[in-house]
């Protein structure tokens, strides 16, 4: 099975909030808001939002 795009071996990525500059680092997660380190972008819960400005996932882009 080829699962390099989102598999556990893929390199961690960072995503930047377009509104306030917060960087979501997959490797670090967002523990203050219950997101464990290593949580992939696509695995974030739908109600997760930017810890700084509340932008939702569609307000982020790959850093």
């Amino acid at each position: 099975m080829n699962d390099t795009a989102s598999g556990s071996d893929a390199a961690f990525k960072d995503y930047a909030c377009l509104y306030c500059g917060y960087i979501y680092e997959e490797e670090a997660g967002d523990p203050d808001n219950g997101i464990a380190p290593g949580t992939r972008w696509e695995d974030l819960p739908e109600d997760w939002c930017c810890p700084h400005c509340s932008a939702e996932k569609d307000g982020f882009e790959l850093a």
Partner: peptide, 8 residues
């Protein structure tokens, strides 16, 4: 609208 933790 500012940026960072104090963004508007």
């Amino acid at each position: 609208f500012g940026a960072g933790a104090h963004a508007c």
